[in-house]
């Protein structure tokens, strides 16, 4: 039985706790810099402070979906196939959906004071909303029935398809004429249009949200692993109940085989 291994988090309890503390510290520092130390923007005034959350949230969403893609490739590749990668992909996608939702909501709160509208049907906004629903759909797909291996492969392939939208979102502001501004740091000229304390605060935001992502991924992964473990035990119990108190060897074999099939090939 591999249940024990799959009950642990990704990072191990000590590293996970340290990450939690570091994340909290970085977020507190971000609040101080974002709301108090960074000066208001020349043109947008205080409304520009929303940028210190909006951009890092979008970055964290890209990162989360990138990890989902990587884990899905490792799951599909027969040599590295392991339930661990399937669970990492699922956990990361859920965290990514949270960050994408935040990106959209923060963008809307920023757009109202500076553009004058909550939403624009421009290419950046539409492709980002599509990204949200792509991965929400992916999370639903993960819950559809099947053996662990068929569910895992199905989800991994869907994850690879969904990721196509990530570069489309990022480059939409260069490919099409949009109301949304171009990237401030990773623009085509790679010439950052922000400096000094404002730039530092933006990078602090990226660091804080990266740590937040890692912490959430670890916690969400552990919950997913625990759930998977419980489902496996419930299935075994159900099979044992149906087969009845027959020869112990027979029931044990059946349960073992099914559990193995559900868990996929474990390393």
């Amino acid at each position: 039985m591999t249940g024990g291994a799959r009950r642990a988090g990704l990072l191990g309890p000590r590293v996970s706790a340290t990450t939690g503390v570091a994340t909290a510290a970085a977020l507190v520092a971000l609040v101080v810099f974002g709301l108090a130390i960074a000066p208001p923007d020349e043109i947008q005034g205080d409304a520009q402070r929303i940028m210190y959350l909006h951009v890092p949230a979008a970055w964290a969403a890209y990162l989360a979906f990138g990890i989902t893609t990587l884990a899905s490739i490792l799951y599909l590749w027969p040599r590295t196939r392991s339930i661990v990668w399937d669970l990492v992909a699922g956990a990361s996608a859920e965290v990514g959906v949270v960050f994408t939702g935040l990106t959209l909501a923060l963008g809307s709160l920023w757009a109202r004071p500076v553009w004058g509208i909550w939403w624009a049907w421009d290419a950046r906004l539409v492709t980002t909303a599509v990204l949200f629903f792509l991965y929400l759909g992916y999370l639903s797909l993960r819950r559809l029935p099947g053996t662990a291996e068929s569910r895992g492969k199905r989800a991994a392939i869907a994850a690879l398809i969904a990721f196509i939208d990530v570069p489309v979102v990022h480059f939409s502001v260069n490919w099409w004429r949009t109301l949304h501004q171009q990237a401030t740091v990773f623009n085509p000229e790679l010439d950052p249009q922000i400096h000094g304390v404002m730039a530092f605060t933006l990078w602090l935001g990226v660091l804080a949200f990266t740590l937040t992502y890692v912490y959430l991924l670890d916690r969400r992964y552990r919950l997913l692993a625990l759930d998977e473990d419980r489902e496996e035990r419930e299935l075994e119990a159900a099979i044992r109940a149906r087969v009845g108190p027959g020869p112990a060897g027979g029931a044990g074999t059946t349960a073992g085989t099914t559990a193995g099939a559900r868990a996929g090939v474990t390393p």
């Binding site: 609040v31 974002g34 709301l35 947008q44 005034g45 205080d46 409304a47 402070r49 929303i50 959350l53 909006h54 923060l106 709160l109 920023w110 109202r112 004071p113």
Partner: peptide, 10 residues
Amino acid sequence: NDAGFVVAAW
């Protein structure tokens, strides 16, 4: 009235 939007966002 930017403060309201900033507070709502954070």
